[in-house]
Simulated scan of single mutants.
Amino acid sequence: MELTGKTALVTGGGIRVGRALVMALAEAGCNVFIHYGNSQTGALEVQQEVEALGRKAFTYSADLSDAQATQGIIPKAQEVFGQVDILINSASVFPLEDKFFQVDLDLWEWIFAVNLRAPFQLSQAFAQQVAGDRQGKIININDARIPRPRPDHFVYRLTKRGLWDMTEILALELAPNITVNGLALGQILEAPEAPDPEEFMRDYAERRIPLKMTGNPKVVTDAALYLLQQDFLSGTTIRLDGAEYLKF
């Protein structure tokens, strides 16, 4: 796909990896519809940065745990830009209190709604507006730890496993016009709660990552742009983890 002039929709586009993806897409020539939940300040800042590059940008707030609000995202993007060519499901929630005996039904439903139902709804609505012989691209942002079962983050793991499987299923369902791929992230960003985030990352790399380095947002954006430019690649989730989860 030639990216110049295309419209991309990024969920969670105001902060962290989502924000980096927005900027990479804009630098590649895309106009960007920036979804955010609570991060209005970040979303407005990145909108200004996109517009400074000469691209069009629009910010839109929607609670992904609300099915009706989620259903309105693609129609709004169509209203603003006419069509959407790229969907990146980046937003997710990662509650710390998510072990098996801590989970109640409210927590279960919230995590499933944001991490799995919302990407399903958005993918369905996105695919429905890719008409005729147009091309479309979906990228689902996932977690490199998911193929190895562990008892931590119980519901989160279930939702991300579902997203991994949905990526493969939709690659078949939406072919030949739409490719669907995923990026499974390892240690990409500094832990904001760490007393010394830089020291945390150095120590983490030394202890856990065979390549002895952590990732960074550019690792993610380079991989995303690669996937968007491939027409013969679909149903693949690429792990960006420095081989960490081959070991752990």
Rank of each mutant, 00 (worst) to 15 (best):
M1L: 12
L3S: 11
L3D: 10
T4N: 14
L9H: 08
L9D: 11
T11F: 02
T11M: 04
I15V: 13
M23D: 10
A24L: 02
L25A: 09
A26R: 09
E27L: 03
G29F: 10
V32A: 07
F33Y: 13
I34V: 12
H35I: 01
H35K: 03
H35F: 03
Q40R: 15
Q47T: 07
Q47G: 00
Q47F: 00
Q48H: 12
E49I: 00
E51W: 06
G54A: 06
T59M: 10
S61F: 00
L64C: 10
L64M: 13
S65D: 11
S65L: 04
A67Q: 13
Q68K: 14
Q71I: 00
Q71K: 13
I74E: 10
P75G: 04
A77T: 05
V80K: 14
I86D: 06
L87R: 04
L87G: 05
N89W: 05
S92P: 00
F94D: 07
F94K: 05
P95W: 07
L96K: 14
K99R: 14
F101D: 15
Q102H: 11
D104L: 08
D106K: 15
D106C: 03
L107D: 11
W108I: 01
W110E: 14
W110N: 15
W110L: 13
W110G: 00
I111P: 07
L116A: 08
P119Q: 09
F120G: 03
A125T: 07
A125L: 12
A127S: 15
G132D: 03
G132T: 07
D133V: 03
D133W: 01
R134A: 15
Q135C: 06
Q135T: 11
G136P: 05
I138D: 05
I139C: 03
N140K: 09
I141E: 09
N142E: 08
D143F: 03
I146W: 07
R148P: 00
R150D: 12
D152C: 00
D152L: 04
H153G: 00
V155W: 04
Y156A: 04
R157F: 00
L158C: 12
K160A: 01
R161K: 12
R161S: 13
L163D: 06
L170S: 10
L170I: 03
L172M: 12
E173A: 14
E173L: 09
A175Q: 11
V180S: 06
L185T: 07
L189W: 11
P195V: 07
D196M: 02
D196Q: 12
P197N: 08
Y204M: 08
Y204I: 01
Y204P: 02
R207Q: 15
I209N: 02
P210A: 01
K212N: 08
G215N: 05
P217G: 11
P217R: 07
T221C: 03
A223Q: 07
A224W: 05
L228K: 10
Q229A: 11
D231V: 10
F232P: 00
S234N: 07
T236D: 03
T237C: 06
I238G: 01
R239I: 00
L240F: 03
E244A: 08
L246R: 01
F248I: 13
F248W: 10
